[in-house]
Simulated assay, not measured.
Amino acid sequence: DKSSAEVMTPNPASIAPGAMAQEAVAVMNQRKITCLFVVDPDNGGKAEGLLHIHDCLRAGLG
């Protein structure tokens, strides 16, 4: 068995909460990833959520 820390991605990709969703899709496509942490740089870098490519596709983006 492995812990979460042993299999996690260190320094995951993130995007600001005010960024446009199209920008998020572009970042995910460019980096060949399927999700981004939504992190507020004005709030100490606190993670506010997780944006998955499926969220964007459901919203008609992609």
Rank of each mutant, 00 (worst) to 15 (best):
P12Q: 08
V39A: 00
K2E: 07
D40I: 03
A5T: 11
V25F: 14
G44M: 12
M28H: 05
D42F: 01
K2A: 06
F37D: 03
N11H: 13
L51P: 00
K2T: 04
A16K: 12
A59K: 04
I33K: 04
H52I: 07
A5E: 13
Q22I: 11
G18K: 04
A5P: 00
N11S: 14
D42S: 08
I53F: 10
G44T: 08
A16H: 12
A59E: 08
M20G: 08
I53L: 14
D42I: 00
L51G: 01
L51R: 04
A13I: 10
H52C: 08
D42G: 02
D42M: 02
G18T: 04
P17H: 13
L61I: 15
E6V: 01
P41V: 06
G44A: 11
P10C: 02
T34K: 12
T9H: 10
P41M: 03
L61Y: 12
L50N: 02
C56N: 04
D1G: 11
A16E: 15
A16G: 11
N11E: 14
M20A: 09
S3L: 13
P17E: 14
A21L: 15
S3D: 02
P17C: 09
R31G: 10
S14K: 06
V25A: 15
I15L: 01
V38D: 07
G49L: 13
V39F: 02
L50W: 03
P17G: 12
D1Q: 07
N29F: 01
L51A: 12
E48N: 06
K2G: 00
A24D: 13
A16M: 01
V38R: 06
D1T: 01
E23K: 08
T9N: 13
T34C: 06
G45L: 06
D1M: 14
K2D: 05
V7K: 07
K32L: 05
A13M: 09
A21V: 14
V7I: 15
I15N: 01
A24H: 12
L36V: 10
A19I: 00
I15Q: 02
I33A: 10
P10L: 03
T34W: 06
N11C: 07
G62M: 11
R31M: 14
G18F: 00
E48K: 09
L61A: 02
P12E: 04
Q22N: 05
P10K: 09
D55C: 07
V27P: 01
E23V: 10
A5G: 10
K32N: 13
A47S: 06
L36D: 11
L61M: 12
P12W: 06
L51I: 12
A26P: 00
P41W: 08
R58T: 07
Q22A: 11
L36T: 10
M8G: 04
M28F: 08
L57Q: 09
A21F: 10
K2R: 08
G44W: 12
A21H: 04
T9F: 05
V7H: 03
A5N: 09
F37I: 09
H52L: 10
M8Y: 05
F37Y: 15
A26C: 01
D42T: 09
D42K: 09
V25Q: 13
L57D: 03
A5R: 14
C56I: 12
V7M: 14
P10Y: 04
K2H: 10
N11T: 12
M20Q: 12
E23C: 00
V38L: 09
P41D: 15
M8L: 10
